[in-house]
Design a binder for these strands. Structure first.
Length: 487
DNA sequence: ATGTGC
């Protein structure tokens, strides 16, 4: 008899170390799995995550099992840190299982600088980044486009940035999907969404989005770190943001349309927030096209911020960005759905893989991995809090059989934003990080710093340990923050 | 996450 746990009437069986299963019963179309150590499972069970995960298995055509990553927490309808793969022919697609911030994601830009080159100049660098990279709620971006510009960005993604000299060919090669979803259908993105996007091209936004200068403190795998161009004491830049108001509007628009046009399917699901469009329906095709367009918008957003960041480093360090070695290491999406073919019980099936707060983690050999990394596997970038630093992993051998080629995406919150503001005060958090940890934070709003205080996050080391031990994403390097700007 | 509500 397996070890079991029960939380609010939801029973989990321990299959092996870090793998817990909610057995299939009632209206579930598959079992569910939670990938977590015991302390992380306790945190996951603390909110509605397990119930939401169980609800997700009610989605039509869900394959194998729904998965909750070690950093999972409750989200809109479907857990953040959730992976759900549904049959692309007779299953469904669910905006709630992608998330409001379509292609919220993260990229790492490497440099040839070391911490020694930067120490003592943190204030200058953080001030210059803050002054030049638009952040905060509302409008103002690197590019002030019109609706035509937005449509071009939606259609072509990073290819648009290449044509307008905001990107190099190498930048495109180092993005998931090469920074372009060719299934994009801008005509299915509402005018309202495009209007929201036109003055947000190249802007961080607010909440947990940030730009962080970091130093590499630990190398766990010399061979893979070398393939990624990473060494100890090296300075790197992490950019974490998404598709801003445009992606948010796409999600809202389609949730409302699903409610109106597919109420029958909605009535059979345990939670209205799981709203899904049946695969093959007109609405499913339109949502998929619009979501791919928003994905393209987010890649261009991160690229425009990269462009500005390179300019800032050129001014501060007095060399061209090429001479500073500021190449894009990789850009990964954390909130997407994608048609992918996976083995399900010995049969190759085309699925909509929904990764909501989860990272693709393909191992060596997969054709989707950029040529430069194909012999080692794709880089996986996992941001922690502004006090803890982050990790670069490499896609693990077991990810394809265990998690539809996915792993975790971050540390995950442990308390609400409201609670965080009661526990912390922004200016105090900022001063302590500077005085005790030599971390320089500059934000539009003190409230945001309180909401994002290191103390509101799970232990990123523990999340990564579980990923590594499961073999779905393996540790390569760890970084520590130097400068952080945010909304 | 988000022109921080329907």
């Amino acid at each position: 008899m397996n070890e079991t746990r029960e939380y609010d009437g939801i029973r989990l069986e321990k299959l092996r170390e870090h793998v817990w299963e909610i057995p299939q019963e009632g209206g579930m179309n598959a079992p569910a799995r939670v990938l977590a150590s015991e302390p992380l499972l306790e945190q996951i069970a603390d909110d509605r995550t397990l119930q939401q995960l169980k609800n997700a298995t009610h989605l039509p055509g869900i394959a194998k099992y729904a998965v909750c990553m070690p950093d999972g927490h409750q989200g809109y309808g479907f857990p953040v840190g959730g992976v759900g793969a549904t049959d692309a022919t007779d299953g469904c697609i669910s905006p709630g299982a992608v998330g409001y911030d379509i292609n919220c994601g993260v990229r790492m830009v490497r440099t040839d600088l070391t911490y020694d080159d930067l120490e003592g100049r943190e204030e200058e660098l953080v001030d210059s980044l803050f002054a030049n990279v638009p952040s905060g709620l509302g409008g103002g971006g690197v590019v002030e486009g019109d609706v035509g510009t937005v449509e071009s960005v939606l259609d072509r993604g990073m290819d648009w940035a290449l044509e307008h000299d905001y990107a190099t060919r190498d930048d495109l090669a180092h993005c998931e999907d090469e920074g372009q979803r060719t299934d994009s259908r801008p005509e299915f993105v509402s005018q309202k969404a495009k209007d929201r996007g036109k003055n947000q091209l190249g802007s961080l936004g607010s909440g947990n989005h940030f730009l962080e200068v970091q130093r590499v403190t630990d190398v766990f795998d010399d061979e893979v770190a070398e393939a990624f161009g990473l060494v100890e004491e090296q300075i790197v830049v992490l950019i974490h943001c998404g598709s801003r108001g445009l992606g948010h509007q796409v999600c809202s628009d389609y949730l409302r349309r699903i409610e109106r046009e597919h109420g029958d399917l909605l009535d059979r699901l345990p939670d209205k927030e799981l709203a899904a469009a049946p695969a093959g329906s007109r609405l499913a095709e339109e949502y998929y096209g619009a979501m791919c367009a928003a994905i393209n918008f987010a890649w261009v957003n991160r690229q425009l911020i990269t462009h500005r960041t390179r300019r800032v480093f050129e001014r501060v360090f007095g060399e061209d960005w090429e001479d500073l070695g500021m190449e894009l290491l990789y850009d990964v999406a954390h909130n997407i759905a994608k048609r992918e073919v996976h083995d399900v019980n010995g049969e190759d099936r085309e699925l909509f893989v929904h990764r909501k707060g989860a990272t693709r983690a393909f191992p060596a050999g997969r054709p989707e991995v950029p040529r430069a990394y194909r012999d080692v596997g794709q880089p996986v970038i996992i941001p922690g809090s502004m006090g803890s630093g982050s990790y670069v992993l490499v896609g693990g051998e077991r990810s394809l059989s265990e998690t539809f080629g996915s792993t975790a995406h971050g540390a995950g919150r442990t308390m609400s934003r409201t609670q965080a503001k009661q526990e912390f005060w922004g200016e105090t958090v900022r001063d302590e990080l500077r005085d005790q940890n030599a971390i320089y934070v500059k934000a539009q709003s003190g409230a945001t710093v309180a909401e994002e205080a290191p103390g509101v996050y799970k232990d990123v080391d523990e999340v990564v340990r579980v990923s590594d031990e499961l073999g779905i994403g393996d540790k390569v390097v760890r970084t520590y923050p130097v400068c952080n700007i945010k909304g």
